[in-house]
Design a protein around this nucleic acid. Sequence first.
DNA 1: TCGATTGACGAACAGTGTTCTATATCGAAC
DNA 2: GTTCGATATAGAACACTGTTCGTCAATCGA
Lengths: 266, 266
Amino acid sequence: MKHVTGSAAEAAMQAVGDQVGQVFGELFGSRRTKPRASRSGDRLSADRIVEVAIGQMRDRGYDAVTMRSIAKELGTGPASLYAHVANRAELDQLVTGRICAQIRIPDPDPEHWDAQLRQSLVDMLALYREHPGVARCTMGMIPLQPGVLVVSERLIALLKAGGVPDQHCAWFIDVASLYVAGVAIEEDIWRERHLGQDPDEGGTLQHVEQEVVVEQVRNVFANLPAEHFPLLSALAVPMTSGDADDRFGFGVDLLVAGLKALAAQG
Amino acid sequence: MKHVTGSAAEAAMQAVGDQVGQVFGELFGSRRTKPRASRSGDRLSADRIVEVAIGQMRDRGYDAVTMRSIAKELGTGPASLYAHVANRAELDQLVTGRICAQIRIPDPDPEHWDAQLRQSLVDMLALYREHPGVARCTMGMIPLQPGVLVVSERLIALLKAGGVPDQHCAWFIDVASLYVAGVAIEEDIWRERHLGQDPDEGGTLQHVEQEVVVEQVRNVFANLPAEHFPLLSALAVPMTSGDADDRFGFGVDLLVAGLKALAAQG
DNA sequence: TCGATTGACGAACAGTGTTCTATATCGAAC
DNA sequence: GTTCGATATAGAACACTGTTCGTCAATCGA
């Protein structure tokens, strides 16, 4: 991680430059890392590494995915991966790009742009859920991967169909992305926490576990000393009611309603 | 991290139980870990460990804080810490609790509940910024620490002063907490990225660095191929305009406006 | 067929969180 | 005042992590 380049500014510019190169590279086919026509099918490649990483994130959780675990599944040592992937951070970037490229956002219909927007955000969370662990890769990443850029582009199309002003479009993209990713990450941390205790169960039992925890948390809220927490103990039921979809649905409604309200008021 | 307890449900119940114990313990003075009247001032304690952890997070970033670095600053080995703190996760919990206890949310004024809410969220981010790295501790944590509970309690008071329905109150707390923490985490990751390259600078130069990156990112957006990204390239300036406060201010306005809109429409 | 490029890989380094075990220290009871 | 027992401390170690170095073998162009 330690660079020996001169100033931090230089390093930052170089980092951005790399990402730009990657963007244009993947978009127009001019790759820096030459694939070198692997006739023998078992050659390593960035694509295979990313694939294995995504698979392991789903099966064993983000934290369990290491350079060694990926290498082991590919039948090699960790050092071999570094010929195709610069480091763990770049691997996370590639994983994010691969997944986000699957998001499909509809062409804007000015009559139902808000419903389309809502559905798109729901779909984004659904995609994160299909590939657990991936959301953890996105935090703090400048969205310059081509797959992510396409998502932004098409989201903006929806917003503009709704007459949202430019500045609001731009900033809303950030807020919405952060919210969706945040929800996905929180769900993922919960999932991983129970994955470590019961490694045999896939995904259905996890729902049951979460119910148990919710029950416990509700009890805590309900039994809080009323003299210190009158509101919180009174709201024990609403605080813990609704499943993950209900809560996320409210958040999305909140964002969309806020967007409309801000646009209306100026 | 691996528990040997029977079922995952058991473990979950025990985890929640522990947190409840801690809540009531810190609230009413009956601590499980007896402080044992340390007359010699250089005795270890959970408080001192938390203090050092917060300090190191500020100075060297979240990732640089390890059990060893904390122990070293306290003039001991890492094993000694485990007598006062169960593990790294509990340490993060304690850090969060300590910091969040500093948040002051005003008594509700029904005339200006929305401005109070807005200001409270801004203050929360400001507090995270004063203690960089702390936000990273909060992801995926059930907010049962007493300090966090007080924040929730007082936020709810503001919301109810504005006539927000119970269910909206409860869910809004979650959305707002997640958003504020998410912004803080993203800022922190950026900060840490530049901290690693120029460890001598404190916080002012970082602003300049960020400006440089923003400039580069704007160039990327502006130079995207217009045939693939017409909207994104046209919005290059709005996408990258505004400093961190502007962007966060928009997000908060969005949340508050959405809350009012949802309450109004039912 | 020869030589050079380059992907693969074993070993190692400097870290991490955590646990075990022995030691030293302290409060309290006799 | 002395002894006893609980307990905080600390050294060493374990099983990991990401990453790098030097070497080796396979492949490709000439």
